[in-house]
Design a protein around this nucleic acid. Structure first.
Lengths: 172, 172
DNA sequence: CAAAACCGCTTGCGATTTGCAAGCAGTTGG
DNA sequence: CCAACTGCTTGCAAATCGCAAGCGGTTTTG
Protein backbone atom coordinates (compact mmCIF):
# COMPACT_ATOMS: atom_id res chain seq x y z
CA UNK A 1 0.00 0.00 0.00
CA UNK A 2 2.15 2.85 -1.17
CA UNK A 3 1.16 6.46 -1.38
CA UNK A 4 0.76 7.50 -4.95
CA UNK A 5 -0.70 10.93 -4.36
CA UNK A 6 -3.28 10.55 -7.06
CA UNK A 7 -7.02 10.89 -6.95
CA UNK A 8 -9.83 8.88 -5.40
CA UNK A 9 -11.53 8.37 -8.76
CA UNK A 10 -12.53 4.74 -9.31
CA UNK A 11 -11.04 4.71 -12.80
CA UNK A 12 -7.78 6.11 -11.52
CA UNK A 13 -7.57 3.74 -8.57
CA UNK A 14 -8.29 0.80 -10.85
CA UNK A 15 -5.52 1.90 -13.18
CA UNK A 16 -3.07 2.23 -10.29
CA UNK A 17 -3.56 -1.47 -9.62
CA UNK A 18 -4.20 -2.89 -13.08
CA UNK A 19 -2.84 -0.22 -15.40
CA UNK A 20 0.11 -2.01 -16.92
CA UNK A 21 0.75 -4.44 -19.71
CA UNK A 22 0.84 -7.64 -17.67
CA UNK A 23 -1.42 -7.69 -14.61
CA UNK A 24 -4.59 -8.39 -16.55
CA UNK A 25 -2.79 -10.95 -18.72
CA UNK A 26 -1.91 -12.93 -15.60
CA UNK A 27 -5.46 -12.69 -14.30
CA UNK A 28 -6.84 -13.66 -17.71
CA UNK A 29 -4.75 -16.85 -17.74
CA UNK A 30 -5.85 -17.73 -14.23
CA UNK A 31 -9.48 -17.03 -15.06
CA UNK A 32 -9.92 -18.44 -18.56
CA UNK A 33 -7.02 -20.89 -18.70
CA UNK A 34 -7.27 -22.07 -15.09
CA UNK A 35 -3.51 -21.69 -14.66
CA UNK A 36 -2.69 -21.81 -10.99
CA UNK A 37 1.08 -22.46 -10.66
CA UNK A 38 3.98 -20.12 -11.35
CA UNK A 39 5.40 -22.31 -14.11
CA UNK A 40 2.05 -22.72 -15.79
CA UNK A 41 1.59 -18.97 -15.92
CA UNK A 42 5.17 -18.53 -17.08
CA UNK A 43 5.41 -21.05 -19.89
CA UNK A 44 1.94 -21.46 -21.27
CA UNK A 45 1.27 -17.83 -21.91
CA UNK A 46 0.85 -16.83 -25.53
CA UNK A 47 2.60 -13.57 -24.82
CA UNK A 48 5.71 -14.88 -23.06
CA UNK A 49 5.93 -13.00 -19.80
CA UNK A 50 9.39 -12.83 -18.18
CA UNK A 51 9.81 -14.67 -14.90
CA UNK A 52 10.82 -11.61 -12.88
CA UNK A 53 7.86 -9.66 -14.19
CA UNK A 54 5.53 -12.53 -13.36
CA UNK A 55 6.93 -12.77 -9.83
CA UNK A 56 6.50 -9.05 -9.35
CA UNK A 57 2.94 -9.00 -10.68
CA UNK A 58 1.89 -11.95 -8.55
CA UNK A 59 3.29 -10.16 -5.53
CA UNK A 60 1.43 -6.97 -6.36
CA UNK A 61 -1.82 -8.80 -7.08
CA UNK A 62 -1.44 -10.56 -3.73
CA UNK A 63 -0.78 -7.31 -1.90
CA UNK A 64 -3.83 -5.74 -3.52
CA UNK A 65 -6.09 -8.63 -2.68
CA UNK A 66 -6.93 -9.80 -6.19
CA UNK A 67 -5.44 -13.24 -5.71
CA UNK A 68 -4.43 -15.50 -2.84
CA UNK A 69 -1.68 -18.06 -2.48
CA UNK A 70 -1.51 -21.34 -0.62
CA UNK A 71 0.92 -24.23 -0.60
CA UNK A 72 0.29 -27.21 -2.82
CA UNK A 73 -0.12 -30.26 -0.56
CA UNK A 74 1.21 -32.58 -3.26
CA UNK A 75 4.46 -30.72 -3.84
CA UNK A 76 6.35 -28.84 -1.19
CA UNK A 77 7.68 -26.21 -3.54
CA UNK A 78 4.57 -25.46 -5.48
CA UNK A 79 2.23 -22.68 -4.57
CA UNK A 80 -1.32 -22.51 -5.82
CA UNK A 81 -2.65 -19.11 -6.79
CA UNK A 82 -6.37 -18.51 -6.62
CA UNK A 83 -8.63 -15.66 -7.53
CA UNK A 84 -10.33 -13.87 -4.68
CA UNK A 85 -13.85 -12.48 -4.91
CA UNK A 86 -12.19 -9.22 -5.89
CA UNK A 87 -10.44 -10.94 -8.78
CA UNK A 88 -13.49 -12.93 -9.84
CA UNK A 89 -15.48 -9.70 -9.94
CA UNK A 90 -13.36 -8.56 -12.86
CA UNK A 91 -15.35 -10.82 -15.19
CA UNK A 92 -17.53 -7.95 -16.48
CA UNK A 93 -14.41 -5.83 -17.05
CA UNK A 94 -12.82 -8.63 -19.09
CA UNK A 95 -16.05 -9.11 -21.02
CA UNK A 96 -16.26 -5.41 -21.86
CA UNK A 97 -12.59 -5.14 -22.82
CA UNK A 98 -12.67 -8.31 -24.90
CA UNK A 99 -15.81 -7.20 -26.72
CA UNK A 100 -14.27 -3.83 -27.50
CA UNK A 101 -11.02 -5.45 -28.65
CA UNK A 102 -12.71 -7.90 -30.95
CA UNK A 103 -14.72 -5.12 -32.58
CA UNK A 104 -11.90 -2.65 -33.19
CA UNK A 105 -8.59 -4.49 -33.17
CA UNK A 106 -6.99 -7.08 -35.47
CA UNK A 107 -7.82 -10.09 -33.35
CA UNK A 108 -7.49 -13.63 -34.64
CA UNK A 109 -10.78 -15.56 -34.98
CA UNK A 110 -9.84 -18.40 -32.65
CA UNK A 111 -8.73 -15.98 -29.95
CA UNK A 112 -11.93 -13.97 -30.11
CA UNK A 113 -14.45 -16.80 -30.01
CA UNK A 114 -14.60 -16.67 -26.22
CA UNK A 115 -15.04 -12.90 -26.27
CA UNK A 116 -17.93 -13.39 -28.65
CA UNK A 117 -19.64 -15.96 -26.45
CA UNK A 118 -19.22 -13.75 -23.38
CA UNK A 119 -20.65 -10.76 -25.22
CA UNK A 120 -23.65 -12.70 -26.50
CA UNK A 121 -24.30 -14.35 -23.16
CA UNK A 122 -24.44 -11.02 -21.37
CA UNK A 123 -24.56 -10.46 -17.62
CA UNK A 124 -26.52 -13.67 -17.02
CA UNK A 125 -23.71 -15.75 -18.48
CA UNK A 126 -21.08 -13.71 -16.63
CA UNK A 127 -22.84 -14.45 -13.39
CA UNK A 128 -22.84 -18.17 -14.10
CA UNK A 129 -19.16 -17.97 -14.99
CA UNK A 130 -18.40 -16.17 -11.75
CA UNK A 131 -20.27 -18.82 -9.80
CA UNK A 132 -18.05 -21.41 -11.45
CA UNK A 133 -14.92 -19.44 -10.62
CA UNK A 134 -16.04 -19.32 -7.00
CA UNK A 135 -16.18 -23.09 -7.10
CA UNK A 136 -12.75 -23.42 -8.70
CA UNK A 137 -10.96 -20.78 -6.64
CA UNK A 138 -12.91 -20.38 -3.44
CA UNK A 139 -14.88 -22.97 -1.54
CA UNK A 140 -18.21 -22.45 -3.21
CA UNK A 141 -20.38 -25.42 -4.22
CA UNK A 142 -20.07 -26.81 -7.72
CA UNK A 143 -22.52 -25.13 -10.09
CA UNK A 144 -24.89 -27.06 -12.31
CA UNK A 145 -23.17 -26.51 -15.62
CA UNK A 146 -19.72 -25.30 -16.57
CA UNK A 147 -19.29 -22.09 -18.54
CA UNK A 148 -15.53 -22.54 -18.62
CA UNK A 149 -15.90 -25.91 -20.36
CA UNK A 150 -18.12 -24.30 -22.98
CA UNK A 151 -15.66 -21.48 -23.54
CA UNK A 152 -12.70 -23.85 -23.72
CA UNK A 153 -14.49 -26.24 -26.06
CA UNK A 154 -15.44 -23.41 -28.39
CA UNK A 155 -11.84 -22.21 -28.40
CA UNK A 156 -10.49 -25.71 -29.11
CA UNK A 157 -12.97 -26.10 -31.94
CA UNK A 158 -11.84 -22.83 -33.45
CA UNK A 159 -8.20 -23.84 -33.21
CA UNK A 160 -8.97 -27.23 -34.72
CA UNK A 161 -10.92 -25.72 -37.59
CA UNK A 162 -8.05 -23.36 -38.26
CA UNK A 163 -5.52 -26.22 -38.28
CA UNK A 164 -7.69 -28.23 -40.63
CA UNK A 165 -8.10 -25.27 -42.96
CA UNK A 166 -4.34 -24.69 -43.02
CA UNK A 167 -3.54 -28.35 -43.65
CA UNK A 168 -5.85 -28.38 -46.66
CA UNK A 169 -5.41 -24.89 -48.09
CA UNK A 170 -7.81 -25.05 -51.05
CA UNK A 171 -11.20 -26.70 -50.85
CA UNK A 172 -11.74 -29.12 -53.73
CA UNK B 1 1.53 0.34 -36.01
CA UNK B 2 4.56 -1.37 -34.60
CA UNK B 3 5.23 -5.07 -34.42
CA UNK B 4 4.99 -6.26 -30.87
CA UNK B 5 5.17 -9.99 -31.50
CA UNK B 6 2.43 -10.76 -29.05
CA UNK B 7 -0.82 -12.61 -29.50
CA UNK B 8 -4.07 -11.88 -31.31
CA UNK B 9 -6.11 -12.19 -28.14
CA UNK B 10 -8.56 -9.30 -27.78
CA UNK B 11 -7.56 -8.74 -24.16
CA UNK B 12 -3.91 -8.63 -25.09
CA UNK B 13 -4.41 -6.33 -28.06
CA UNK B 14 -6.50 -4.00 -25.93
CA UNK B 15 -3.74 -3.90 -23.32
CA UNK B 16 -1.12 -3.14 -25.95
CA UNK B 17 -3.03 0.05 -26.76
CA UNK B 18 -4.52 1.00 -23.40
CA UNK B 19 -2.41 -0.91 -20.90
CA UNK B 20 -0.62 1.89 -19.13
CA UNK B 21 -1.32 4.35 -16.35
CA UNK B 22 -2.36 7.34 -18.44
CA UNK B 23 -4.12 6.50 -21.71
CA UNK B 24 -7.47 5.78 -20.08
CA UNK B 25 -7.11 8.81 -17.81
CA UNK B 26 -6.83 11.04 -20.87
CA UNK B 27 -9.83 9.39 -22.50
CA UNK B 28 -11.79 9.63 -19.25
CA UNK B 29 -11.21 13.39 -19.07
CA UNK B 30 -12.24 13.82 -22.69
CA UNK B 31 -15.32 11.66 -22.20
CA UNK B 32 -16.64 12.69 -18.79
CA UNK B 33 -15.04 16.11 -18.41
CA UNK B 34 -15.39 17.16 -22.05
CA UNK B 35 -11.81 18.38 -22.11
CA UNK B 36 -10.76 18.93 -25.68
CA UNK B 37 -7.60 21.07 -25.64
CA UNK B 38 -4.08 20.14 -24.63
CA UNK B 39 -3.97 22.65 -21.79
CA UNK B 40 -7.33 21.58 -20.45
CA UNK B 41 -6.18 17.98 -20.29
CA UNK B 42 -2.87 19.03 -18.78
CA UNK B 43 -3.96 21.39 -16.02
CA UNK B 44 -7.40 20.29 -14.99
CA UNK B 45 -6.56 16.69 -14.36
CA UNK B 46 -6.87 15.50 -10.78
CA UNK B 47 -3.88 13.28 -11.27
CA UNK B 48 -1.42 15.79 -12.73
CA UNK B 49 -0.13 14.26 -15.92
CA UNK B 50 3.21 15.57 -17.21
CA UNK B 51 3.13 17.49 -20.45
CA UNK B 52 5.49 15.20 -22.34
CA UNK B 53 3.51 12.15 -21.28
CA UNK B 54 0.28 13.81 -22.37
CA UNK B 55 1.79 14.70 -25.74
CA UNK B 56 2.98 11.14 -26.19
CA UNK B 57 -0.36 9.61 -25.23
CA UNK B 58 -2.32 11.90 -27.49
CA UNK B 59 -0.03 10.92 -30.33
CA UNK B 60 -0.48 7.22 -29.63
CA UNK B 61 -4.24 7.53 -29.25
CA UNK B 62 -4.31 9.37 -32.57
CA UNK B 63 -2.21 6.71 -34.27
CA UNK B 64 -4.45 3.98 -32.93
CA UNK B 65 -7.62 5.71 -34.05
CA UNK B 66 -9.20 6.35 -30.64
CA UNK B 67 -9.24 10.11 -31.05
CA UNK B 68 -8.95 12.67 -33.86
CA UNK B 69 -7.53 16.14 -33.97
CA UNK B 70 -8.51 19.26 -35.85
CA UNK B 71 -7.50 22.90 -35.66
CA UNK B 72 -9.53 25.30 -33.57
CA UNK B 73 -10.94 27.95 -35.89
CA UNK B 74 -11.02 30.51 -33.09
CA UNK B 75 -7.39 30.18 -32.11
CA UNK B 76 -4.60 29.43 -34.53
CA UNK B 77 -2.52 27.49 -32.05
CA UNK B 78 -5.20 25.41 -30.44
CA UNK B 79 -6.06 21.95 -31.56
CA UNK B 80 -9.32 20.26 -30.69
CA UNK B 81 -9.22 16.60 -29.82
CA UNK B 82 -12.32 14.50 -30.32
CA UNK B 83 -13.27 10.93 -29.58
CA UNK B 84 -13.82 8.67 -32.56
CA UNK B 85 -16.45 5.94 -32.64
CA UNK B 86 -13.68 3.63 -31.43
CA UNK B 87 -13.08 5.85 -28.42
CA UNK B 88 -16.77 6.38 -27.71
CA UNK B 89 -17.24 2.62 -27.72
CA UNK B 90 -15.13 2.40 -24.59
CA UNK B 91 -18.09 3.59 -22.51
CA UNK B 92 -19.01 0.04 -21.38
CA UNK B 93 -15.37 -0.61 -20.47
CA UNK B 94 -15.27 2.53 -18.33
CA UNK B 95 -18.58 1.62 -16.75
CA UNK B 96 -17.33 -1.87 -15.85
CA UNK B 97 -13.98 -0.62 -14.53
CA UNK B 98 -15.57 2.19 -12.54
CA UNK B 99 -18.13 -0.14 -11.01
CA UNK B 100 -15.41 -2.59 -10.03
CA UNK B 101 -13.25 0.19 -8.60
CA UNK B 102 -16.00 1.69 -6.51
CA UNK B 103 -16.85 -1.71 -5.04
CA UNK B 104 -13.34 -2.79 -4.10
CA UNK B 105 -11.08 0.24 -3.85
CA UNK B 106 -10.91 3.20 -1.46
CA UNK B 107 -12.70 5.65 -3.72
CA UNK B 108 -13.97 8.98 -2.46
CA UNK B 109 -17.77 9.37 -2.46
CA UNK B 110 -17.88 12.39 -4.74
CA UNK B 111 -15.62 10.71 -7.29
CA UNK B 112 -17.70 7.55 -7.40
CA UNK B 113 -21.15 9.10 -7.79
CA UNK B 114 -20.88 8.99 -11.57
CA UNK B 115 -19.73 5.37 -11.50
CA UNK B 116 -22.77 4.57 -9.41
CA UNK B 117 -25.17 6.26 -11.82
CA UNK B 118 -23.61 4.49 -14.79
CA UNK B 119 -23.85 1.13 -13.03
CA UNK B 120 -27.47 1.64 -12.08
CA UNK B 121 -28.43 2.96 -15.50
CA UNK B 122 -27.00 -0.10 -17.23
CA UNK B 123 -26.53 -0.60 -20.98
CA UNK B 124 -29.56 1.53 -21.82
CA UNK B 125 -28.01 4.55 -20.12
CA UNK B 126 -24.61 3.82 -21.66
CA UNK B 127 -26.20 3.85 -25.10
CA UNK B 128 -27.80 7.22 -24.46
CA UNK B 129 -24.47 8.52 -23.21
CA UNK B 130 -22.73 7.27 -26.33
CA UNK B 131 -25.34 8.96 -28.50
CA UNK B 132 -24.57 12.19 -26.69
CA UNK B 133 -20.83 11.71 -27.18
CA UNK B 134 -21.45 11.22 -30.90
CA UNK B 135 -23.15 14.60 -30.87
CA UNK B 136 -20.33 16.27 -28.95
CA UNK B 137 -17.41 14.65 -30.78
CA UNK B 138 -18.71 13.55 -34.17
CA UNK B 139 -21.39 15.16 -36.28
CA UNK B 140 -24.36 13.26 -34.94
CA UNK B 141 -27.63 15.05 -34.20
CA UNK B 142 -28.27 16.37 -30.70
CA UNK B 143 -30.00 13.78 -28.55
CA UNK B 144 -33.18 14.51 -26.61
CA UNK B 145 -31.69 14.66 -23.14
CA UNK B 146 -28.14 14.95 -21.83
CA UNK B 147 -26.63 12.15 -19.76
CA UNK B 148 -23.41 14.12 -19.33
CA UNK B 149 -25.30 16.99 -17.72
CA UNK B 150 -26.90 14.56 -15.30
CA UNK B 151 -23.55 13.00 -14.43
CA UNK B 152 -21.86 16.35 -14.02
CA UNK B 153 -24.70 17.77 -11.92
CA UNK B 154 -24.61 14.75 -9.62
CA UNK B 155 -20.86 15.14 -9.26
CA UNK B 156 -21.13 18.85 -8.49
CA UNK B 157 -23.82 18.15 -5.92
CA UNK B 158 -21.59 15.59 -4.23
CA UNK B 159 -18.67 18.02 -4.13
CA UNK B 160 -20.92 20.76 -2.79
CA UNK B 161 -22.34 18.51 -0.10
CA UNK B 162 -18.82 17.52 0.90
CA UNK B 163 -17.72 21.15 1.12
CA UNK B 164 -20.73 22.04 3.23
CA UNK B 165 -20.10 19.10 5.54
CA UNK B 166 -16.47 20.11 5.99
CA UNK B 167 -17.35 23.74 6.68
CA UNK B 168 -19.71 22.67 9.45
CA UNK B 169 -17.96 19.66 10.96
CA UNK B 170 -20.43 18.69 13.70
CA UNK B 171 -24.15 18.72 13.18
CA UNK B 172 -25.93 20.57 15.97
C1' DC C 1 1.24 49.03 -29.19
C1' DA C 2 4.22 46.90 -26.04
C1' DA C 3 4.18 43.82 -22.20
C1' DA C 4 2.21 39.89 -20.21
C1' DA C 5 -0.22 35.82 -20.43
C1' DC C 6 -1.23 31.84 -22.84
C1' DC C 7 -0.86 28.20 -26.79
C1' DG C 8 0.70 23.26 -27.95
C1' DC C 9 4.53 20.87 -27.50
C1' DT C 10 9.77 19.68 -26.95
C1' DT C 11 14.13 18.93 -24.56
C1' DG C 12 17.37 17.48 -20.89
C1' DC C 13 18.14 14.53 -17.39
C1' DG C 14 18.03 11.53 -13.33
C1' DA C 15 15.16 7.79 -11.45
C1' DT C 16 12.42 3.91 -12.19
C1' DT C 17 10.76 0.03 -14.81
C1' DT C 18 11.22 -3.35 -18.32
C1' DG C 19 12.90 -7.46 -20.81
C1' DC C 20 16.15 -10.99 -21.39
C1' DA C 21 19.33 -14.56 -19.87
C1' DA C 22 21.30 -17.05 -16.50
C1' DG C 23 21.26 -19.08 -12.15
C1' DC C 24 19.87 -20.76 -7.34
C1' DA C 25 18.54 -23.86 -3.51
C1' DG C 26 15.34 -27.22 -2.67
C1' DT C 27 12.09 -31.31 -4.33
C1' DT C 28 10.64 -35.08 -6.89
C1' DG C 29 10.65 -39.26 -9.72
C1' DG C 30 13.28 -42.82 -11.98
C1' DC D 1 22.29 -40.77 -7.31
C1' DC D 2 21.07 -37.95 -10.78
C1' DA D 3 18.30 -35.54 -14.08
C1' DA D 4 14.36 -32.93 -14.39
C1' DC D 5 11.58 -29.68 -12.31
C1' DT D 6 9.90 -26.30 -8.56
C1' DG D 7 9.16 -21.08 -7.50
C1' DC D 8 11.74 -17.31 -7.71
C1' DT D 9 16.14 -14.10 -7.80
C1' DT D 10 20.03 -11.58 -9.82
C1' DG D 11 22.75 -8.82 -13.22
C1' DC D 12 22.52 -5.80 -16.66
C1' DA D 13 21.32 -3.06 -20.75
C1' DA D 14 17.57 -0.61 -22.81
C1' DA D 15 13.41 1.72 -22.62
C1' DT D 16 10.22 4.52 -20.22
C1' DC D 17 8.74 7.84 -16.72
C1' DG D 18 8.32 12.14 -14.27
C1' DC D 19 9.79 16.58 -13.34
C1' DA D 20 11.32 21.22 -14.68
C1' DA D 21 12.45 24.40 -17.87
C1' DG D 22 11.96 26.38 -22.20
C1' DC D 23 10.59 27.48 -27.23
C1' DG D 24 8.43 29.96 -31.08
C1' DG D 25 4.28 31.74 -31.90
C1' DT D 26 -0.61 33.91 -30.74
C1' DT D 27 -3.82 36.35 -28.16
C1' DT D 28 -5.17 39.39 -24.46
C1' DT D 29 -4.42 43.32 -21.59
C1' DG D 30 -3.23 47.88 -19.72
Amino acid sequence: MKETGRSGCPINLTLEILGDRWSLIVLRDMMFGNRRHFRELLAKSDEGIASNILADRLKRLLENGLISRRDDASHKQKGIYSLTEMGISLVPVFAAMADWGRRFLPVTPEMSIRAEILAEGGPALWERFMAELRFLHLDAPRPAQSVLDDLTAAYRDAVERKRAAEAEPEVA
